[in-house]
């Protein structure tokens, strides 16, 4: 087989997988360090947060518009309180290039979020995680290992929710147990990325 044919095959496989975001971080993966200089004047650095937390860091990719995110607004503060009590630092990150820092700030104020809402300009952090949608959650242990990746719960509506998957994972990690379900999926809004 000629080098040209081999190269074409490799390119074809790459082209097939490229649109599938095969690079999304999952259980067992490490997360490259990052810092967000946020609109609130503070700087948020992953390795610092991991060092200062008791159990790890939870990153929730978020949106001001997505209809799969908004139904959580009525209960996300309660959820974050539960995760925080288990020793986790919780950040929501907005990586949509269609939602400005001002819009994100206003949305956070309007919903009285009790956790930092971070603006990820040019989706740099979303690219590090390979995050594809909102809502999408990553739980990172103190030694910088993804322990859980996926949804918050099995339904965006509180009334129809049966499993609170993120809480189950958080409880297991903080109790020193293995996470039973390390990865889940849910429908969500694709992150609107900048052209790079």
């Amino acid at each position: 087989m000629s080098r040209k044919v081999v190269l074409s095959l490799i390119l074809a496989i790459f082209a097939f997988t490229l649109d599938s975001f095969a690079f999304t971080k999952g259980p067992g993966d490490k997360i490259e360090d990052f810092t967000i200089a946020n609109f609130d004047g503070k700087s948020y650095n992953l390795s610092e947060a991991l060092k200062n937390s008791n159990s790890g860091v939870i990153v929730m990719f978020w949106s001001t518009e997505c209809p799969w995110v908004q139904p959580y607004n009525d209960r996300i503060n309660d959820y974050v309180k539960e995760y925080s009590e288990k020793g986790f630092t919780v950040w929501a990150i907005n990586s949509n290039n269609t939602e400005s820092a001002d819009v994100v700030k206003e949305h956070a104020n309007k919903n009285s979020y009790s956790f930092p809402m971070l603006k990820d300009n040019n989706n740099v952090v979303a690219d590090i995680f390979g995050s594809t949608r909102t809502p999408e959650v990553f739980v990172i242990s103190k030694d910088n290992t993804v322990m859980y990746h996926g949804r918050i719960s099995d339904n965006k509506s509180a009334a129809e929710q049966n499993t609170h998957d993120l809480k189950i994972a958080v409880d297991e990690i903080s109790s020193g147990k293995d996470v039973t379900v390390k990865e889940t999926k849910s429908f969500g809004c694709g992150i609107k990325r900048v052209e790079k």
Binding site: S20, R133, E136, D154, K185, S186, F187, I191
Partner: peptide, 18 residues
């Protein structure tokens, strides 16, 4: 069971649309 459907359609699909 949306999760099972997504995995059936495409294992790498996490659920984002379109």
């Amino acid at each position: 069971n949306p999760e099972a459907l997504m995995t059936y359609v495409d294992k790498s699909w996490q659920g984002e649309i379109p």
